[in-house]
Simulated assay, not measured.
Amino acid sequence: PATKEVPRRLLHPKKKTVGVRIPDNRVVQALLAELGEPLLSSTLLMPDEEDPLTQGWEIKERLDHQVDAVIDAGDCGSEPTTVVDFSSGVAEVVRRGTGDPSRFE
């Protein structure tokens, strides 16, 4: 398949890199398989709040007037994910969180 150019608004403003999440969630995996292409996602952190929204019912209650759909697949937790940087061509674990980084060490 042809490589698509990454939209400039998705690039890290200083590093010119893009982060990719590889979720271990059966609902997200099923959506990705059905769509056959990536999804854009983000941690849902509301302005002036410290903790992200993680409960589908709360997201729907608060944002139903602004989003087309909310898929509630249960609690996704609030622990940050593990981040592995491949931008230099070598894997470097830059943050430990959910997700086992041992294969990159």
Rank of each mutant, 00 (worst) to 15 (best):
P1G: 15
A2R: 14
A2E: 12
T3P: 15
T3Q: 08
T3I: 06
K4W: 12
E5H: 12
E5R: 12
R8N: 10
R8Y: 05
L10I: 13
H12G: 07
P13V: 11
K14D: 15
K15T: 09
K15A: 15
K15S: 11
K16Y: 12
K16E: 14
V18K: 06
G19F: 07
G19R: 10
I22Y: 09
V27S: 07
V28I: 15
A30Y: 06
A33H: 13
A33P: 02
G36T: 11
E37H: 12
P38V: 14
L39F: 08
L39K: 00
L40V: 02
L45I: 14
M46D: 01
M46I: 08
E49V: 10
E50H: 04
D51C: 04
L53M: 13
T54F: 03
T54P: 00
T54A: 02
I59K: 09
D64R: 13
D64A: 15
V70F: 05
D72L: 00
A73N: 03
G74H: 00
D75C: 03
C76S: 05
S78W: 01
S78V: 02
T81H: 09
T82C: 05
V83S: 09
V83W: 05
F86K: 00
S88M: 11
V90D: 13
V90I: 13
V94F: 11
R95W: 00
G99R: 09
S102E: 00
F104V: 15
